[in-house]
């Protein structure tokens, strides 16, 4: 049976113009959430989001469903594009003048997707040490080595805790499944 995502991928492969619009509607919020954590400057983050979708649209043929979910592929593109933007010379220049702004920036506190408040609470309930690692690795694009340094932990511990964190999330989502499904039904 063809899932909704499979059907969308098929339409993207056929380069249907409407397919890009649908892809954007389905994933732009979640991807933008990751991007703004890595690149807080709005105009750069917006550029990164656009670039992410354009790259995905152009390279959809290189996406292999056997190697992972579509969203995983998209979020990796988004993260890499954001990190590239962060490292680019013009951005660094800008960053110096904006440093105050970044310090004030509150991760995850920009705006809240009301559809996902339930899930958000679940993430918030995560053990603090797990939440930090998920935040660093998933939302801020740190490598495991960088995260280990940042959290002042051995690399092996980081790896173990990431696994524990995701297990914890899976368990939490598992319990929440009916509610989550209900919420997903009301997604646009």
């Amino acid at each position: 049976m063809l899932s909704k995502a499979d059907a969308l991928i098929e339409r993207l492969r056929r380069r249907e113009p409407k397919a890009l619009s649908d892809l954007y509607d389905a994933y732009s919020g979640a991807l933008y959430g990751v991007i703004v954590r890595i690149v807080p400057r709005a105009e750069v983050a917006e550029q990164v989001l656009q670039d992410t979708f354009l790259k995905a649209y152009k390279n959809i043929d290189s996406y292999d469903p056997h190697k992972g979910r579509l969203f995983t592929w998209l979020v990796n593109i988004a993260r890499n594009t954001a990190i590239d933007a962060l490292r680019s010379a013009p951005y660094r220049q800008q960053q110096k003048t904006d440093s105050l702004d970044i310090l004030v920036h509150n991760p995850g506190g920009q705006s809240v997707n009301p559809d996902h408040i339930g899930l958000r609470d679940l993430v918030a309930q995560l053990d603090e040490k797990h939440r930090l690692l998920i935040d660093l690795l998933y939302f801020q694009g740190y490598t495991q080595e960088e995260a280990a340094e940042k959290a002042n932990l051995p690399l092996g511990t980081v790896k173990t805790r990431v696994r524990q964190a995701i297990r914890e999330l899976r368990r939490a989502f598992g319990e929440q499944t009916p509610a989550v499904l209900l919420m997903l039904l009301f997604l646009p």
């Binding site: 979640a30 992972g68 979910r69 995983t72 979020v75 899930l119 679940l122 998933y138």
Partner: peptide, 19 residues
């Protein structure tokens, strides 16, 4: 698949609507 779904759900939970 389970790991990816969990991560995807976190991302949706932290979604930020773009302009």
């Amino acid at each position: 698949e389970a790991i990816e779904q969990a991560l995807e759900q976190i991302a949706h939970a932290h979604a930020v609507p773009p302009p």
